[in-house]
Computed example of a mutant assay.
Amino acid sequence: MTDGTHLTTVETVKEAGSWLFTVRDAYGELDEVILVPCEDGVEGWINRCPHEAQRLDVGRGAAMRNGEIVCPRHGSTFDSCAGDCDNGEAAGTRLVPVETTVDDGDVYLSDRSVTVANEGGIADADTSPADDVDDDLPSSTSHIGF
Rank of each mutant, 00 (worst) to 15 (best):
S80N: 07
R94W: 04
G83T: 09
E52P: 06
V70E: 09
L95P: 00
D57A: 05
T77K: 02
A90R: 06
F78R: 07
P50K: 13
T93F: 10
H51Y: 08
C81N: 10
A53H: 03
A63K: 14
D86Q: 07
N87F: 03
N47I: 02
G67S: 02
G88R: 00
R73G: 14
D86Y: 10
D57C: 05
C71P: 02
N47W: 06
P72K: 06
A62C: 06
T77F: 00
G61Q: 04
R60H: 07
N87R: 07
R55A: 11
C49P: 08
C71G: 08
C49V: 13
A62P: 04
A90K: 00
M64P: 06
P72Q: 07
T93S: 15
N47C: 09
H51E: 02
V70Q: 11
N66K: 12
V70D: 06
R94S: 14
N66W: 13
D84C: 11
C81F: 10
N87Y: 04
G67M: 01
G92W: 04
R94H: 12
A63W: 10
N47H: 06
R60D: 15
D57S: 03
C85W: 08
N66H: 09
R48V: 10
A62M: 07
R94Y: 04
G59E: 10
S76T: 11
N66A: 15
A63T: 12
C85P: 03
C71H: 09
N87P: 00
N87H: 04
L56D: 15
A90M: 04
T77Y: 02
G88K: 00
N87S: 12
G83P: 01
H74T: 11
L56W: 13
G67W: 01
G88A: 09
P50F: 13
C71S: 02
G92D: 14
E52T: 13
R65G: 02
G88L: 01
A63F: 09
H51G: 08
G92F: 03
R55C: 01
D57F: 08
L56Q: 10
